[in-house]
Amino acid sequence: MVPIIRSEWLKLRRSKVWLLLFFSPLLAGLIGATASMTPDVDPWVFLQATVFYTHALLFLPLLTGVFSAFVCRYEHIHGGWKQLLAMPVHRSGVYLVKLLAVMGLLAVVQLLTVVSLLAAGMIEGVETPFPWGAVLLHVAAGWAACLPLAALQLAVSTAWASFAAPLSVNVIFTLPNMLVANSNDYGPFYPWAQPVLAMLPDRLGAGTFLVPTDTLLAVVLGSFAVFLAGGLLYFTRRTI
């Protein structure tokens, strides 16, 4: 695995994907910094809700798709796959490293979003201490909730050479979030709504999830297992 990771890092390092890391945190932070605070809610909980909602409702699932398409793009365009898979490496290793790359990029985005929340709070003049534990818990949960989406998008991105095709799939599944995420009955079971649900604090206060933790875990892990198994099965058998 390690050699494949190092090789992937070399390809990723010089790509322009880095520019994409900043967009969502910046926009979400901006919205947080300009939001008018509600006096009867804990300021950090309010800001967390604003910034993370902006970030995770659409951006985070969409970015998952963009990153997945991106790490496959440089293999697709100039015959990288055939060279890579004619190397003495296991296909499953190659696939898992691509997944790792996507999740790594998402981790950076998540951390930048924390910075963004912190900055928004400073601009808004919040004086209470920053709830590190709660915020990091939600950020990590939101990141983990992207696992199934990344697994599915990676499967689609390895299958289709075009950049637009996997993104279409991504958008088709992500746009319904605008409705589904607000539904108490269906939101918890829709994989694309999990990142935003996992990142939002409950009204009761920071550190609790909007959705029962066991449902969240079951949906995220269940869909991850299905998508990953499907993607791996396909990728290890496909004709290059």
Partner: peptide, 18 residues
């Protein structure tokens, strides 16, 4: 490189929603 227009388009969409 179609990653560029696609990414800009998606970014535009999210901006418009907000």
């Amino acid at each position: 490189n179609q990653a560029v227009p696609l990414t800009i388009g998606i970014a535009g969409l999210v901006v418009s929603i907000f």
